[in-house]
Design a protein around this nucleic acid. Sequence first.
DNA 1: CACCAGGCAAGTA
DNA 2: TACTTGCATGGT
Length: 212
Amino acid sequence: MYERLHAHFGARDWWPGDSPFEIMVGAILTQNTNWKNVERAIDNLKRVGLLSLSAMSELSQDLLAEYIRPAGYYNIKAGRLRNFFHFINKEWDGDLDSFLQQPAAALREQLLSIKGIGPETADSMVLYAAGQPIFVVDAYTHRILIRHEIIDESFGYHEIQELFMDNLEEDTLLFNEYHALIVQVGKVYCKKSKPDCSHCPLAGLNGVERQQ
DNA sequence: CACCAGGCAAGTA
DNA sequence: TACTTGCATGGT
């Protein structure tokens, strides 16, 4: 699966961001949201020089919500961002780098304890901000594996994650590329209601031919 | 016009 | 435990 995807799409420059902090903010903003809208929100913050932990920590929730408005769910996400800032400031004295240098398991556990950060957001942060090898599972991953009859609907987030991590080298770059490629093939060929399996590089995988 | 996008939390059965 | 709903904008 990885080889087919990589041959078809090539390397992805995935999860752009100039800093771990920017990547983590993006990870919260992109929840159920198109990345282009997240970029508008992040650009708003950059334009006024507020894209830092110290600066954003000072903003009121309402003002923060205004800046991130284009990302949608702005009131909810402003609260979630503030929960995240509060944790780093309170538990790590605002030292994000030290926080990210912990082992992946400890990092993940603490991220999940923050209200507003679920499994996918936490794992995205561990992989793309901390650079540690953990596999990110998303809705596309779930849908693609079901359509190719590799799993059934009973598989949850953790089971899918184990499926990949038990069968792959623990390699940050591989996990980074793989997740990016899954999102790409999902966006282009494996949409919810308009799958285009005829040109999909995964057609015929696992012996399942050109299903609709 | 309808549907969806790089989810999560809270509420309900 | 397992669904369902609210959150909300911008693109296709």
